[in-house]
Amino acid sequence: RIAPEDLPSRVVSLMEERKRLERELAQAKKQLAMGGGSGGGAAETQVQELGGVKIIARKLEGVNPKDLRGLVDDGKKQLGSGVVAFVAVSEDGKGAIAVGVTEDLTSRYNAVELVKAGAAAMGGKGGGGRPDMAQAGGPDAAKADAALDAVRAAVGELAGAA
């Protein structure tokens, strides 16, 4: 039992603990998304090369769409040069896609065009952002793999045309 006079400090303590746990959970999800937590190096196996361009394209379960941009930024740092595409699958069956293009490749690849291709595969329209970072959504997350394939195909086509 808690004495009434101790209640305010107990509530503050519980709120601080909740914030800490939320931060830890977000960090764990981020590590999982980037392939960490499984002996390391798992993310390296996710890197493909299409026409000489490195690409990471992954479907992420249980990741908040708001976290996609940060994850894409992390992926771009990991690659150094390349394209990163992540699709977050929500519990309600919707998908969110974010695509990042490292600065050295924005003259060849436009993240907005790539994200539009991915969103279209999930039944979405549009998408917006900048040449180096774009995000969109689609109503059918069951087609997340098709969305990633559409981004890969667009990167491959452009790589072949270069």
Rank of each mutant, 00 (worst) to 15 (best):
A3F: 10
G51R: 01
T45K: 13
G37P: 03
K30Y: 09
Q31K: 11
V47R: 10
M34N: 05
G51S: 07
G51L: 00
L25C: 00
E24G: 05
L21I: 03
A26R: 14
E49T: 15
V47Y: 06
P8K: 04
L7D: 00
L21H: 02
P8I: 02
V11A: 07
A43T: 03
E22Y: 02
G41Q: 02
G37E: 01
L32F: 11
M34G: 09
S13Y: 12
Q48L: 11
I2N: 00
K19I: 03
E16Y: 08
R10Y: 12
Q46C: 11
G39F: 10
G35Y: 06
E16A: 14
L7W: 13
V11G: 04
L21M: 04
G40Y: 04
K30Q: 12
L14D: 10
L25R: 15
L7E: 02
Q31I: 01
M15L: 11
V47W: 05
L7K: 05
Q48G: 13
A3T: 01
Q27W: 01
S9G: 13
A42G: 12
K30W: 06
E17G: 15
L50E: 05
S9D: 07
G40S: 13
K30P: 00
M15G: 04
L25T: 07
L7I: 06
E17C: 01
K29G: 06
D6N: 12
S13A: 14
Q31E: 14
A42E: 08
Q46L: 13
A33R: 04
A26L: 06
Q46W: 14
Q48A: 14
K19W: 08
V11T: 04
L7N: 00
G37Q: 05
G37R: 04
R10C: 02
A43L: 07
A42T: 08
L14C: 07
A33K: 03
L50Q: 03
T45A: 14
L32D: 02
A26D: 11
A42W: 02
L25Q: 06
P8Q: 06
L14K: 02
M34V: 07
